[in-house]
Protein backbone atom coordinates (compact mmCIF):
# COMPACT_ATOMS: atom_id res chain seq x y z
CA UNK A 1 0.00 0.00 0.00
CA UNK A 2 2.95 2.30 0.46
CA UNK A 3 4.07 4.54 -2.33
CA UNK A 4 6.99 6.86 -2.61
CA UNK A 5 5.96 10.30 -3.74
CA UNK A 6 9.26 10.80 -5.40
CA UNK A 7 11.28 7.82 -6.45
CA UNK A 8 14.94 8.42 -7.08
CA UNK A 9 15.49 4.98 -8.61
CA UNK A 10 12.70 5.66 -11.11
CA UNK A 11 14.12 9.00 -12.05
CA UNK A 12 17.57 7.58 -12.61
CA UNK A 13 16.20 4.81 -14.83
CA UNK A 14 14.08 7.35 -16.63
CA UNK A 15 16.98 9.68 -17.38
CA UNK A 16 19.22 6.85 -18.50
CA UNK A 17 16.44 5.58 -20.72
CA UNK A 18 16.08 9.05 -22.26
CA UNK A 19 19.71 9.00 -23.39
CA UNK A 20 19.13 5.63 -25.02
CA UNK A 21 20.07 3.02 -22.43
CA UNK A 22 18.13 -0.13 -23.32
CA UNK A 23 18.77 -1.80 -19.97
CA UNK A 24 17.24 1.09 -18.04
CA UNK A 25 14.33 1.04 -20.45
CA UNK A 26 13.87 -2.66 -19.81
CA UNK A 27 14.01 -2.25 -16.04
CA UNK A 28 11.65 0.71 -16.13
CA UNK A 29 9.16 -1.39 -18.04
CA UNK A 30 9.36 -4.47 -15.84
CA UNK A 31 9.27 -2.39 -12.65
CA UNK A 32 6.03 -0.70 -13.64
CA UNK A 33 4.39 -3.47 -15.60
CA UNK A 34 2.22 -4.91 -12.84
CA UNK A 35 0.99 -1.51 -11.71
CA UNK A 36 0.16 -0.50 -15.27
CA UNK A 37 -1.50 -3.83 -15.97
CA UNK A 38 -3.74 -3.46 -12.95
CA UNK A 39 -4.62 0.10 -13.85
CA UNK A 40 -5.20 -0.77 -17.52
CA UNK A 41 -7.47 -3.66 -16.53
CA UNK A 42 -9.87 -1.12 -15.10
CA UNK A 43 -10.61 0.02 -18.66
CA UNK A 44 -10.84 -3.35 -20.34
CA UNK A 45 -11.37 -6.95 -19.30
CA UNK A 46 -9.32 -8.15 -22.27
CA UNK A 47 -5.98 -9.16 -20.74
CA UNK A 48 -4.19 -9.38 -24.08
CA UNK A 49 -5.40 -5.97 -25.07
CA UNK A 50 -4.10 -4.49 -21.81
CA UNK A 51 -0.71 -6.18 -22.28
CA UNK A 52 -0.49 -5.00 -25.89
CA UNK A 53 -1.37 -1.49 -24.82
CA UNK A 54 1.49 -1.45 -22.33
CA UNK A 55 3.84 -2.69 -25.03
CA UNK A 56 2.59 0.01 -27.41
CA UNK A 57 3.05 2.58 -24.67
CA UNK A 58 6.70 1.68 -24.16
CA UNK A 59 7.38 1.50 -27.89
CA UNK A 60 5.96 4.97 -28.21
CA UNK A 61 8.04 6.25 -25.30
CA UNK A 62 11.17 4.83 -26.89
CA UNK A 63 10.48 6.61 -30.16
CA UNK A 64 9.66 9.88 -28.46
CA UNK A 65 12.46 9.72 -25.91
CA UNK A 66 14.28 12.76 -27.30
CA UNK A 67 11.26 14.92 -26.59
CA UNK A 68 10.34 13.62 -23.15
CA UNK A 69 10.80 15.60 -19.97
CA UNK A 70 13.77 14.27 -17.97
CA UNK A 71 12.25 15.64 -14.77
CA UNK A 72 8.86 13.97 -15.25
CA UNK A 73 7.34 12.12 -12.30
CA UNK A 74 7.62 8.63 -13.73
CA UNK A 75 4.74 6.69 -12.21
CA UNK A 76 1.97 9.26 -12.85
CA UNK A 77 3.40 9.97 -16.29
CA UNK A 78 3.26 6.31 -17.29
CA UNK A 79 -0.24 5.90 -15.91
CA UNK A 80 -1.46 9.03 -17.69
CA UNK A 81 0.06 7.90 -21.00
CA UNK A 82 -1.41 4.41 -20.74
CA UNK A 83 -4.81 5.85 -19.93
CA UNK A 84 -4.70 8.16 -22.94
CA UNK A 85 -3.51 5.43 -25.26
CA UNK A 86 -6.11 2.90 -24.14
CA UNK A 87 -8.93 5.39 -24.33
CA UNK A 88 -7.93 6.33 -27.86
CA UNK A 89 -7.71 2.73 -28.98
CA UNK A 90 -10.96 1.77 -27.29
CA UNK A 91 -12.87 4.58 -28.92
CA UNK A 92 -11.29 3.77 -32.30
CA UNK A 93 -12.19 0.14 -31.90
CA UNK A 94 -15.80 0.88 -31.14
CA UNK A 95 -15.90 4.07 -33.19
CA UNK A 96 -18.32 2.64 -35.77
CA UNK A 97 -21.06 1.80 -33.33
CA UNK A 98 -21.98 4.94 -31.41
CA UNK A 99 -23.60 3.16 -28.50
CA UNK A 100 -20.74 0.81 -27.87
CA UNK A 101 -18.29 3.64 -27.27
CA UNK A 102 -20.64 5.03 -24.67
CA UNK A 103 -20.30 1.77 -22.86
CA UNK A 104 -16.53 1.88 -22.99
CA UNK A 105 -16.43 5.35 -21.57
CA UNK A 106 -18.44 4.28 -18.59
CA UNK A 107 -16.20 1.37 -17.85
CA UNK A 108 -13.98 1.50 -14.81
CA UNK A 109 -14.11 -1.84 -13.07
CA UNK A 110 -13.18 -2.17 -9.43
CA UNK A 111 -14.08 -5.27 -7.48
CA UNK A 112 -13.73 -5.91 -3.82
CA UNK A 113 -13.73 -8.85 -1.52
CA UNK A 114 -14.17 -9.08 2.22
CA UNK A 115 -11.35 -10.52 4.26
CA UNK A 116 -13.14 -12.63 6.81
CA UNK A 117 -10.38 -12.52 9.39
CA UNK A 118 -11.11 -8.92 10.30
CA UNK A 119 -14.84 -9.29 10.52
CA UNK A 120 -16.18 -9.68 14.01
CA UNK A 121 -19.91 -9.31 13.53
CA UNK A 122 -22.68 -8.95 10.97
CA UNK A 123 -22.89 -5.21 11.42
CA UNK A 124 -19.31 -4.69 10.30
CA UNK A 125 -19.77 -7.05 7.38
CA UNK A 126 -22.92 -5.25 6.37
CA UNK A 127 -21.26 -1.86 6.56
CA UNK A 128 -18.22 -3.07 4.67
CA UNK A 129 -20.35 -4.59 1.93
CA UNK A 130 -22.49 -1.50 1.76
CA UNK A 131 -19.45 0.75 1.32
CA UNK A 132 -18.10 -1.53 -1.42
CA UNK A 133 -21.48 -1.47 -3.06
CA UNK A 134 -21.55 2.31 -2.94
CA UNK A 135 -18.10 2.51 -4.56
CA UNK A 136 -19.18 0.21 -7.37
CA UNK A 137 -22.19 2.34 -8.15
CA UNK A 138 -20.23 5.58 -8.37
CA UNK A 139 -19.97 7.18 -11.82
CA UNK A 140 -16.83 6.22 -13.72
CA UNK A 141 -14.74 9.31 -13.08
CA UNK A 142 -15.56 9.41 -9.38
CA UNK A 143 -14.71 5.74 -9.12
CA UNK A 144 -11.39 6.34 -10.83
CA UNK A 145 -10.51 9.21 -8.51
CA UNK A 146 -11.40 7.07 -5.49
CA UNK A 147 -9.27 4.21 -6.84
CA UNK A 148 -6.23 6.40 -7.49
CA UNK A 149 -6.54 8.28 -4.23
CA UNK A 150 -7.40 5.52 -1.78
CA UNK A 151 -6.01 2.40 -3.40
CA UNK A 152 -2.99 3.75 -5.27
CA UNK A 153 -2.31 6.46 -2.69
CA UNK A 154 -1.58 9.10 -5.26
CA UNK A 155 -1.64 12.81 -4.51
CA UNK A 156 -4.22 15.23 -5.84
CA UNK A 157 -1.76 16.69 -8.34
CA UNK A 158 -0.69 13.27 -9.58
CA UNK A 159 -4.32 12.21 -10.08
CA UNK A 160 -4.96 15.45 -11.95
CA UNK A 161 -2.03 14.67 -14.24
CA UNK A 162 -3.14 11.09 -14.83
CA UNK A 163 -6.76 11.92 -15.59
CA UNK A 164 -5.89 15.10 -17.45
CA UNK A 165 -8.13 17.30 -15.31
CA UNK A 166 -7.37 20.19 -12.96
CA UNK A 167 -6.45 19.51 -9.32
CA UNK A 168 -9.59 21.42 -8.36
CA UNK A 169 -11.72 19.01 -10.40
CA UNK A 170 -10.02 16.11 -8.61
CA UNK A 171 -10.99 17.64 -5.26
CA UNK A 172 -14.55 18.20 -6.42
CA UNK A 173 -14.96 14.67 -7.75
CA UNK A 174 -13.49 13.25 -4.58
CA UNK A 175 -15.72 15.33 -2.38
CA UNK A 176 -18.87 14.25 -4.21
CA UNK A 177 -17.74 10.63 -4.17
CA UNK A 178 -16.99 10.64 -0.46
CA UNK A 179 -20.34 12.28 0.29
CA UNK A 180 -22.07 9.53 -1.68
CA UNK A 181 -20.05 6.82 -0.04
CA UNK A 182 -20.99 8.06 3.42
CA UNK A 183 -24.69 7.89 2.69
CA UNK A 184 -25.60 5.12 4.97
CA UNK A 185 -29.35 5.19 5.07
CA UNK A 186 -31.32 3.16 7.54
CA UNK A 187 -33.07 1.31 4.75
CA UNK A 188 -29.80 0.31 3.14
CA UNK A 189 -28.57 -0.92 6.45
CA UNK A 190 -31.65 -3.04 7.12
CA UNK A 191 -31.62 -4.39 3.58
CA UNK A 192 -28.04 -5.47 3.86
CA UNK A 193 -28.57 -7.12 7.22
CA UNK A 194 -31.48 -9.00 5.68
CA UNK A 195 -29.39 -9.95 2.69
CA UNK A 196 -26.64 -11.13 4.94
CA UNK A 197 -28.97 -13.22 7.06
CA UNK A 198 -30.64 -14.79 4.05
CA UNK A 199 -27.52 -15.89 2.22
Amino acid sequence: MKSTPFSVEDRMLWQNFLVGDVRSFEKLMSDHFRLLFRYGSKFSKDREFVKDSIQDLFMMLWEKRDNLNPEAAVKPYLMASLRRLMHRQLSERTGQGGQASQEVENYFAVEFSVEEQYIADEVTTARSLHIQNLISTLPRRQKEVVYLKFFQELSRDQIAQIMNITPQTVSNLLQIAIRQMKEFTKEGYVLIILWYLLF
Binding site: F37, F112, E115, Y118, Y147
Partner: peptide, 8 residues
Protein backbone atom coordinates in the same frame (compact mmCIF):
# COMPACT_ATOMS: atom_id res chain seq x y z
CA UNK B 1 -8.73 -3.89 6.83
CA UNK B 2 -11.45 -6.19 5.54
CA UNK B 3 -11.90 -4.31 2.28
CA UNK B 4 -9.62 -5.87 -0.29
CA UNK B 5 -9.44 -4.54 -3.77
CA UNK B 6 -9.46 -7.42 -6.23
CA UNK B 7 -6.63 -6.71 -8.63
CA UNK B 8 -6.19 -8.88 -11.71
Amino acid sequence: LSMRLEEP
